[in-house]
């Protein structure tokens, strides 16, 4: 197990390196001048040159990258051009918002998807299944930015049930904080539910056809018991992957939803960094997001081993 973790961490580091290199090169090629953006268009050429010099922008890209990389290796992500602050501090400030969003939206999506997915597998080709599949299509088809706007207009502006914008930190009360991110979380959850239902339904269907289900009939168990203990247990592996991917996706910044609801999370920070050509900040965010994906994937692989004895003991499925 330890061997496995070390291997995964190493390959994760390689991925991080390449991603950081690619982001750096791509951003170098995009037109736009960070110095000009931070000083404004009426800045004198001398001032601009001075700033470029101090920001290290006149160095060739590989030297700039080298500087960034050596800083990163000693734990310094550099300073943001726009905010003038340490990138690490900026990330840590935004993180609670994004994590709360990710956790809450998954906490809404997972139980609903399990109930609908399992029911539609059990009652395959019956009305519950048809409704579930329609819900699934609907969730998939609705664009998130549109749904976010509709919800905002209807529930926040119209009914006044939720704040229109902003995030209340947990320090100001758990429920107040929950209330401030509930609506965006629901919007995010609706986007996640479709794929989740689909994977839960299909793995449940395949589990229901396994031979161990025949044994539960031979043993005379009720449907509830045989599904609750045997079918569900056989159907958890595939959804685990999707859940991990979705979680990593939201942690990587729910750009649209965070922007529309004016939540100060990673997604908005990312957007700002791109708009302002804040290379150092963007580089920091990308590294953080990639790192998160690597770690989430690793945790998923470890979970696989815990959940699935067939992987753990390396046997074959006869």
């Amino acid at each position: 197990m330890l061997n496995f973790i070390v291997k995964r961490l190493f390959s994760g580091l390689v991925v991080l390196f390449f991603i950081s290199l690619v982001t750096f090169i791509v951003l170098m090629w995009i037109p736009g001048d960070p110095a000009l953006l931070s000083l404004g268009t009426d800045a004198t050429p001398e001032k601009l040159a001075e700033l470029r010099e101090s920001m290290g922008l006149n160095l060739p890209w590989y030297e700039q990258y080298y500087q960034w990389l050596t800083g990163f290796l000693v734990g310094n992500l550099g300073n943001s051009y726009v905010f003038g602050e340490d990138v690490f501090t900026l990330l840590v400030q935004r993180l609670p918002v994004t994590i709360s969003l990710a956790v809450l939206s998954m906490a809404i999506a997972i139980p609903i998807a399990i109930v609908i997915g399992v029911l539609s597998a059990i009652y395959k080709e019956q009305w519950i299944d048809y409704i579930a599949r329609s819900v699934m299509q609907l969730g998939d088809a609705m664009p998130q930015f549109w749904l976010a706007l509709v919800f905002l207009v209807f529930f926040s502006a119209g009914l006044g049930w939720f704040p229109v914008a902003g995030f209340t930190p947990v320090e100001e009360g758990f429920f107040a904080s929950l209330h401030s991110i509930l609506l965006p979380s629901i919007v995010l959850a609706i986007g996640q539910i479709g794929p989740l239902i689909r994977i839960i339904r299909s793995s449940m269907l395949s589990s229901l056809e396994q031979d161990y289900m025949l044994m539960t009939s031979v043993n005379g168990f009720t449907k509830f018991r045989s599904i609750g203990k045997y079918a569900l247990r056989g159907a958890i592996i595939a959804p685990l992957t999707i859940i991990a991917m979705q979680l990593a996706g939201i942690l990587g910044g729910a750009v649209l939803v965070e922007s529309i609801f004016a939540l100060p999370g990673l997604g908005r920070l990312l957007l700002m960094a791109v708009e302002q050509r804040d290379l150092i900040l963007l580089q920091g965010i990308v590294i953080f997001v990639t790192g998160t994906v690597v770690v989430v994937n690793m945790v998923t692989d470890i979970l696989y081993q815990i959940v699935n004895p067939m992987i753990r003991f390396g046997g074959s499925h006869e």
Binding site: Q210, D211, Y212, K229, R233, G234, P309
Partner: peptide, 13 residues
């Protein structure tokens, strides 16, 4: 008592 060639015992329990 089933055929031995298939998974009548739940593989994950």
């Amino acid at each position: 008592v089933p055929q031995n060639t298939v998974a009548f015992l739940h593989p994950m329990i």
